[in-house]
């Protein structure tokens, strides 16, 4: 019975940790894949894959150094610092996902991003025979830019509570394998996955984690203990869905062209 409760207790953290890390990483890896595919198709696969591989190695090293280092800082300090960053990150995604779902700002289009990147690669002229430096640098840069966000999410979500780095890393790794498999199988951008829905879910999960860690770091007692994390997720979800409806209503009342927001 005690063991059963221990497993349930642990899963209230580990479950959302895996899901949040998986979904957030999925979004980032899909965006990176779009650019890597464009680079590979236009400028050759050798440079594109080498750049991607080098960036992934740097990212794994960053996680291996940052993750354990954070566990040496007092937990209260880590929870407040990482909780604040998670909250800012999560609320930024949630805000954008709500505005996109309500039609206030345009949705992200992977096919359009692929076409734009392919055109940019072609405009750079002839490619080198063996190692194309442009392909290598572009693939390295995009994988680093998107991957740093993944490292942040893994370290921030995993570093706030004891033993959560492993579940967070597993979530990110599964996302990487899935996106790689899709890239190899499809050879085109993964546009069929509803990116805004993923961002919506990640925004909710990460914001809930952020608020929870800050409360814990401040020494406040959440009602229901760790179970309140599930309550926070439910609360953010209901509020966000309500906000989409309210924003749609507001935008219908004041029609004009949707403004782009980076």
């Amino acid at each position: 019975m005690v063991l059963e409760w221990q497993i349930v207790f642990d899963w209230t953290h580990a479950g959302p940790t895996i899901v949040a890390a998986f979904l957030a990483s999925l979004v980032e890896f899909i965006e990176a894949l779009t650019v890597v595919l464009a680079v590979g198709a236009v400028r050759g696969w050798r440079g594109a894959l080498a750049g991607t591989g080098a960036a992934l190695a740097v990212l794994v090293l960053m996680t291996a150094i940052l993750g354990p280092a954070i566990t040496r800082v007092p937990q209260g300090v880590v929870q407040i610092a990482l909780g604040t960053l998670l909250l800012l990150f999560g609320m930024r995604w949630l805000r954008k996902a709500i505005l996109r779902a309500a039609g206030i700002i345009p949705l992200h289009d992977e096919d359009a991003a692929y076409a734009k990147e392919s055109a940019a690669m072609r405009a750079l002229g002839m490619r080198a025979r063996r190692w194309d430096r442009i392909a290598l640098a572009t693939a390295f840069k995009i994988t680093m830019v998107e991957g740093v966000e993944v490292v942040f999410i893994v370290v921030a979500i995993g570093g706030g509570g004891g033993g959560l780095l492993l579940p967070a890393s597993v979530g990110a790794l599964v996302a990487l394998l899935l996106v790689t498999a899709l890239g190899v199988a499809l050879h085109r951008p993964v546009a069929m996955i509803p990116e805004n829905t993923l961002k919506f879910a990640v925004g909710i999960l990460v914001s809930a984690f952020g608020a929870f860690w800050i409360g814990e770091g401040l020494g406040l007692a959440w009602p229901g203990g760790d179970w309140s994390l599930l309550g926070l997720n439910a609360g953010w979800l209901m509020m966000s869905l309500l906000l989409v409806i309210l924003c749609r209503h507001r935008s219908r009342m004041s029609p004009s062209v949707a403004r782009s927001e980076a």
């Binding site: 914001s207 409360g215 406040l220 609360g235 906000l243």
Partner: peptide
């Protein structure tokens, strides 16, 4: 922390901030 109030207030305040922000952004379309 000093007053020992519920952390639910923390979450409610954050939700209110997000609501104000997105609703203001939606209204700005006009």
């Amino acid at each position: 922390r000093p007053l020992g109030w519920s952390p639910i207030l923390l979450a409610v305040g954050l939700a209110a901030i997000l609501a104000e922000n997105v609703l203001r952004r939606a209204a700005e379309r006009s």
